[in-house]
Design a binder for these strands. Structure first.
Lengths: 147, 147
DNA sequence: CCAAACTGGTTTCATTTGTAACCATCGAAA
DNA sequence: TTTCGATGGTTACAAATGAAACCAGTTTGG
């Protein structure tokens, strides 16, 4: 362990990124092939499916997306008639977004696939390893949000 | 926990991605502000600094980058005169890449910063949490590489 | 009441990325 | 050898991204 060398292979930021990239890329195949969605679109669908109705800003916060990503994803899903916008009564800048029947159907189709993917992935780990990854990720999330 | 709803907030692929994205983005500020490097460039610098000499293909494998990213990063670092290419004796398709003095100097400047970043990040966790994240990440890496 | 600061959301533009096509070279097999 | 498939690496083009400018509309302070 020379002091002036950085071992990329054991450098946490790199490992985390590579891991997330691999997992995310693999999972994206599902919604890409299945529904032709991009990641921002998938997250939008998933956010609205979960919460029912949200504004673009709320969506961005919930799914950690930049507002331009949200804007474009919403526009695309609207094109597909998977969601509708309803102007807010009191604040005319705000729009409430909600899935249409078609959007909800797509969401319902995706949910079991997503769950299966996660289950399968975690299934390759021992119980202890599963606990470890969950604990570790939660701890880092906490550490980062606090800072 | 409704069966037909996916909680994004606890969905591992999403959490991993967000976490890695946050960490990576924060770390990137260091090499971006300090040296004006992109992530592929940083990884290239770091890979060559660690190993001494590598071909573009090896670099791609070691740092999980697509060959086009490697190609562009190498071109940029070459522009800066931070690395040199040496044609392989036996196989004229192959080039051996190595850092110049200037490249090595930049690398040496970055290493302590990278280590400090990681140390500070892990320092926010308890010993148990640190062990957990390392164990968990390693387990997932293993699970994914095996598949 | 009015200007200035702010917020929700969209658009523009430059940069980054991924895919696929490509060029050159190499190795194996006919 | 000659040809054909693989391989190292670059390039061209399209799509995704981020930063910053922007347009409403809203709030705040004078």
């Amino acid at each position: 362990m020379e002091p002036d060398i950085l071992e990329l292979e054991s450098f946490l930021p790199y490992r985390l990124y590579r891991l997330a990239d691999t997992v995310s890329r693999e999972f994206s195949r599902i919604y890409k092939e299945r529904q032709g969605l991009t990641r921002p679109e998938w997250r939008t669908l998933s956010g609205l499916g979960e919460r029912g109705t949200m504004t673009a800003t709320e969506l961005g916060e919930q799914s950690a997306m930049h507002k331009t990503k949200v804007s474009r994803a919403v526009a695309e899903l609207e094109q597909r008639r998977w969601l509708t916008r309803t102007p807010d009564e009191n604040d005319r800048r705000v729009e409430h977004l909600a899935l249409t029947k078609a959007g909800l159907a797509a969401y319902r189709e995706m949910v079991p696939l997503a769950k299966a993917f996660e289950r399968e992935l975690l299934g390759r780990l021992s119980a202890g390893e599963r606990a470890a990854i969950v604990t570790g990720v939660a701890a880092l999330e906490e550490a980062l949000s606090a800072a």
